[in-house]
């Protein structure tokens, strides 16, 4: 069964509703045993980086997540802030350490050329790596709400969108995946991404 990591993230229920709609069994939990025994993990997230990491630490989930991913090789999908937490560091309101599962840092979207920050709306994905199970994202629009983005090596980018800078939209490092956009708010393409993760990435 999939597990959604319970740390009071704002979009948790909408993420669960999407999996329910897809008929994917999923459980909301902060229990280390359930997390370590899950077939796949979802890390949701909305809001600021620092408080989110603080909540994960307070709930003693940081080491559990790392063990699940690094030792037990359980596939993980981070969503929006949950994706940003996968990286090493963030400079959102001070310096904060992340989970360090993907090399790279979270930095502010530069305000230039009249672009509004946060980026809020539908933007078009350009496939950066071919041959993953997510090739279908090419040319598709997904829904973003964010002011910070991941600065990382291009080899981790499944897709990116243009917002003044190249914004990583979907990232991967081994069995760790992340979407900067909200698949639970991105219509059919979003549901396809969640379904592909649940049924093709996660071992059945």
């Amino acid at each position: 069964m999939l597990a959604v990591i319970d740390y009071d993230a704002g979009n948790t229920f909408n993420v669960i509703k999407a999996f329910d709609y897809l008929g994917v069994k999923i459980k909301l939990t902060d229990n280390p045993t359930e997390i370590l025994e899950s077939s796949g993990l979802i890390l949701p997230g909305v809001g600021a980086f620092g408080p989110a990491m603080a909540t994960l630490e307070k709930k003693q989930l940081v080491d559990v997540i790392k063990e699940a991913v690094l030792v037990k090789k359980i596939p993980l999908l981070g969503i929006c802030l949950g994706m940003q937490l996968l990286f090493e560091k963030s400079s959102e309101y001070g310096e904060h350490n992340g989970l360090g599962l993907i090399p790279g840092n979270i930095i502010a979207i530069p305000e230039k050329g009249g672009l509004k920050v946060p980026q809020m709306g539908w933007n078009k994905n350009r496939l950066k790596i071919q041959g993953t199970k997510f090739d279908f994202i090419e040319g598709q629009y997904s829904y973003f709400v964010h002011s910070f983005y991941a600065s990382c090596d291009k080899k981790y980018l499944i897709s990116a969108v243009d917002y003044g800078v190249e914004v990583p939209a979907m990232v991967q490092n081994g069995s760790v995946f992340g979407t900067q956009f909200h698949p639970e708010k991105s219509g059919k393409i979003g549901l396809d991404i969640l379904e592909t993760f649940a049924k093709k990435v996660v071992r059945q």
Binding site: N14, K17, A18, D20, Y21, Y143, E184, K185, S186, G187, G190, L191
Partner: peptide, 8 residues
């Protein structure tokens, strides 16, 4: 609505 519809 949010159980059936996945957009903002």
């Amino acid at each position: 609505v949010s159980r059936k519809v996945f957009m903002p």
